[in-house]
Structures are given as C-alpha cells and as structure tokens.
Design a protein around this nucleic acid. Structure first.
Length: 274
DNA sequence: ATGCTAACCTGCGCGC
DNA sequence: TGCGCGCAGGTTAGCA
C-alpha cells in the first residue's frame, strides 16, 4: 500500500482524530513485526498525549511528552481510525496487530498482513539509527539537481537504484521511481554517474511533481481510513509505465519493456527514455 | 567504501 | 477446484 504519498495521506487522515488525544490503552496482538514491538511500549505510552504526528521518509512519528512512537507501514500496512466501541464489539481482524485506544473514544488501528512494518519506541533525546543517515525529503529545496548531480559522480549504480536509495533521497518507491524516470526521459538502467545535469534537473522536477500530484489525489485514494468507503482506484489513471510492461507507450506507441533491477520490476520505453 | 543477494511474511492471480 | 509458482507499494543485514 504505502509509498510516500500514501504515508502522508495517512498522516493527514489520522491527525485530526489523534492529535491532542491521550492514549488510554494499547492492545498488542502480534509483537513479531519486522522488529518486535518493544516490551515497554504500553508502559511508556499509557496516559501520555499525542502532541503531533509528523512524517520522516515513510516513517510516521507520533510525538508524546516523553518520546515518539515510530510506525512504518512496510509493504502492506495501514493505520486507520475506528470507534473504540467497534473495536470491543467486533473481533479484530487477523492482521490487526496493534490498537491505540484514545481518550476521545477513537482507536488508532495498525494492520499489516505481511508484517514488514514496525511499531517502535524512541525515548526523548534518544537517536534511532533507523532515522539517521537518511537523505533529504524529496519535496524540499535540499533535494535538487545540483545535489543529485554531485552525489552521483563516479557512481556506477543504475540511476533507478540510486534514486531509490534512502541515503540519497527518501521516499521514492518503486512506482514513482518508474514514473518519474519515464516522464524525465531517462532509462532506469543508466549508470547514475553518466546521467547529465540536465537530466537530473528533469528527474528532480518530475519526482516532485509526481509525488505532489499523488498526495493531492491521496485523499480520494485512502478515504477508507477516515470514513468507511471501499478501496481506492489508486493513482492508476495517471500511471504511464508502472505495471504496463508489454503494453504500448502512451507517448510514442512503442512496446514498453520490463526488466528487473535488484528484484524490482522496472518498466520503461526504449524509445522515449535515453 | 560499494554493491549485490537474500530475507522478512501473507495473499493473490495465473497456468496447468 | 486445487496446487504450485511467481509476484507485490519496503528496507535492512550480511557477505563478496
């Protein structure tokens, strides 16, 4: 489910119901996620108030008086608000691993079928290695063509893997890496060090545009976690290459190629991307 | 340092 | 229908 736009959409969706709310109780049904949910989590959070919810890369940071609850949604995770009454009356689903019961009668529920996500604790003023050594946020000034150009010189790694590397820039997942490269006209397998300054400028512009547009549409995408509506149509109408291997390029009509790079599908147009 | 692979885990769609 | 296979929006650990 989550690329950066969806994590941001989740943050915006749950914030109105959980910020300024005291955590009355935490129910943990499954501790074994990507990393075990720390044993002291319940004790540290009970009675504390969620001041704000921030996002760094694809991590959500729920800030309490004494530290942060760190949540990652992995590949299949979701976080939604339900009424606490329902959480007591209806048996939780198979993959509803953690519930945060709030003072306003709502429950923040973490669901993750594949268990690639995590729920961690960061004590105030404690550094978490997970959150260190991360590159700039893609939607900030710090992420620009000059930065990418300099950082990539002499690198032989493929440009797609380069921009998906969190120490370079955070939050560019497989879908948006494919889309941005297509829109910028850059082949995913081109060595990062051979990509020109001009190409990086286009790539940066496209990454920003595509992520921003997806965040805007995210509201309609993941409505289900505030309301109760069904599943999304995603961002699919706008996807030009992702998941379209073998189909025609929407720009020139050529057949789109699909290759694998580091166990991930890369789709590109051999005609439009150089 | 850099770069590649395997691994974590469940569910779904496809071909036979 | 059922079974086995391959694939899926992420990220880290470990090894060459």
């Amino acid at each position: 489910m989550p690329e950066l736009p969806e994590v941001e959409t989740t943050r915006r969706g749950i914030s109105p119901y959980s910020e300024k709310q005291q955590i009355e109780k935490i129910v943990i049904r499954q501790r074994q996620l990507r990393w075990a949910v720390p044993a002291g989590l319940e004790k540290r959070c009970r009675g504390k108030t969620i001041q704000t919810i921030k996002r760094r890369a694809k991590y959500l940071l729920l800030e309490l008086e004494n530290g942060n609850i760190i949540i990652h949604l992995g590949m299949s995770g979701s976080l939604r608000i339900i009424d606490s009454k329902n959480s007591k009356q209806e048996p939780p689903g198979k993959h509803d691993h953690v519930d945060f019961l709030l003072a306003n009668g709502k429950t923040l529920r973490f669901n993750d079928p594949r268990k690639f996500g995590c729920v961690l604790w960061q004590e105030k003023d404690e550094s978490l290695s997970l959150l260190e050594n991360m590159g700039p946020e893609p939607l900030t000034e710090a992420f620009n063509a000059e930065y990418l150009f300099k950082k990539s010189r002499k690198k032989t790694v493929a440009v797609k893997q380069f921009i998906m590397n969190n120490t370079v820039v955070v939050g560019v997942g497989n879908i948006y890496a494919n889309e941005s490269l297509f829109r910028a006209g850059v082949r995913p397998q081109k060595p990062a060090g051979k990509v020109t300054r001009k190409q990086y400028q286009q790539l940066v512009d496209e990454i920003k545009q595509v992520l921003s547009a997806a965040i805007e549409q995210g509201g309609t995408t993941l409505r289900d976690f505030v309301g109760g509506d069904g599943k999304p149509g995603y961002f699919q109408q706008t996807l030009l290459v992702y998941g379209r291997g073998g189909e025609d390029c929407k720009r020139c009509g050529s057949s789109l190629k699909e290759i694998r790079q580091g166990q991930r599908a890369s789709t590109y147009c051999p005609n439009c991307q150089k």
